[in-house]
Amino acid sequence: MTEPILRLENVSYAYPDGPDAVKNLSVSIEKGERVAVLGRNGAGKSTFFLLCNGVLEPEAGKIFCAGKPVTRKKQDLLELRRRVGIVFQEAENQILAVTVEGEVSFGPLNLGLPLPEVERRTAQALTAMGLEGYAHRSPQYLSGGEKKRVTIADILAREPDVILLDEPTASLDPENVTRLEEILDRLTQVGIALLVSTHDVDFAARFARRGLVFNRGRLAKDASMEEIFADSALLEQAGLRKPWLWQAAEAACPGLPRYPLTMEQYRLWLHR
């Protein structure tokens, strides 16, 4: 059996002036997985992400990166940050440089790579995000969707194994959400594991097979999306609802244990 890329074992964290933001969390992420991270505001999703990449130091518990325990040694942290990247919720908070090319090159430059390699990765990440002509543009004149793609290119240029996206759909219009879903599909194809936190259960249902439900800092459920949406008590507790497709199918034919989550499943279900 191969080691999971990322594993958290009984991890807890509290901000200096608050109660535990993440409590006794154990979870593991396999290579190339797609996981939705669900929960209401303040449930601890962002804190979980910051712990996964070593920006926050767990107060208790351990983090394993490809089987190796991560200590607070600089070497370990840099290795963890190379393998696990976060796309922050607000692009404005992440974008640092004054040109798109400069911005995307910041990550690989921090890896201490030689310049030609930095240039190759920057160009490749820009191409992968459909930003070929944007290298010399200033970030302040980009649209919201373009900024989001720049922040994903930022992380992609570091060639990570896992990308954590913190509420990526929150500031996007429907067209850009569709575009984001295509981008996420391509990232999965090249073998990158994706964790996406969101409130948008319809998006989550399309995106993932596995879901993590957070409630007040605790991992309330780690299961398949069908199991999560079949558990009404859990959804109520965590402030979530069932996806519209699921609700529509349930209204048409109540009493079944599970219903379709994606359009494709819905079509099959109709002709069952």
């Binding site: 920006v55 990247g85 430059l109």
Partner: peptide, 20 residues
């Protein structure tokens, strides 16, 4: 938050960007 974002991309005291 900005500093968290910098750290998560491996910032360790030197700010460097590619420029053409």
């Amino acid at each position: 938050v900005c500093f968290d974002a910098m750290e998560s991309r491996g910032y360790d005291g030197k700010l460097a960007f590619l420029s053409h």
